[in-house]
Design a protein around this nucleic acid. Structure first.
Lengths: 146, 146
DNA sequence: TTTGGATAGTTGCACAAACAACTATATGCC
DNA sequence: GGCATATAGTTGTTTGTGCAACTATCCAAA
């Protein structure tokens, strides 16, 4: 039994993602308090567009680990909020390229600051080397299952 | 800056819970393949009832980190599937006590085995001591934010 | 004993996720 | 060129989540 670390009673919070749920809720509250009318999921799409805009919905699927219908609807809602714009690709008419609007460009700095703040609150009192190990383990878990 | 471990580009997967999402998806697929017609969320409620049944919906809220409407609907759906039963408390008529049915008692062994299997796949190649540190960090994160 | 506040649970609404089925376009092979 | 197949995106359905507003019950203090 090489990997029998999880006795009963310990597996629950790994599966349910207790910690990441708590982080997401905290960040959502910060968005709401700041009067930012976006969801964490919408923010996660913008996050990748801030790194590079003009990518396809399929590329957003890969980046955000979501399926195509999820991205369709997130982009729908982001478009309603005037935060992104679909532009049909000239080369391949199946593809929508997603671009930021001026409004969403303005959101980057403020939301990133709130995200940093949230993570600092989450990791208060945790030594850096333990955080590094934790990140490493979570990455391996993801790679093992993807 | 005591906790500046998260440079940009690293915070994303912590917030989105990439790893726990992958674990939950894998376990859900195992349930489906085994012909078990329940969701991970429903399973997470049963998980606590297997430890102790006859608890109130509010106690299920605390145990599963969900709000009251979420538990109301999960219990609704579990009742439709004949997996739990609401029984009004004699002492306090506001309270529903939730009990398992024979069907859900049978589910425990099989689903727990699939959950163990999933975690073993997830943690393959991860040394035990790193898993322990990871669990520790995630618990602190949760405590810091709750 | 009444009244006001707390607690348990439900309902409505908006948003999101997973899956299946669908449309439209592109591509490769005959 | 024409057809099979793959790819990009959309739509419908079920399930779950978070918030606000609501009902019912309990409890404690005037």
């Amino acid at each position: 039994m090489p990997n029998n670390q999880f006795k009963k009673g310990e597996l629950y919070s790994f599966i349910t993602g207790k910690a990441s749920t708590a982080i997401a809720r905290r960040l959502q509250k910060k968005f709401n308090t700041a009067g930012l009318n976006i969801t964490i999921e919408q923010w996660s799409v913008l996050y990748h567009l801030w790194k590079q805009e003009g990518i396809s919905q399929q590329e957003l699927c890969n980046a955000t680990f979501r399926d195509k219908p999820s991205i369709t609807r997130l982009v729908d809602n982001l478009e309603k909020l005037n935060l992104v714009k679909r532009v049909a690709s000239e080369n391949d008419r199946r593809i929508n390229l997603i671009f930021l609007t001026k409004q969403s460009q303005k959101l980057q700095e403020e939301t990133m600051a709130l995200a940093d703040e949230t993570l600092n609150e989450a990791l208060e009192t945790v030594p850096t080397d333990k955080v590094d190990i934790c990140k490493e383990v979570l990455q391996i878990v993801y790679d093992n299952l993807k």
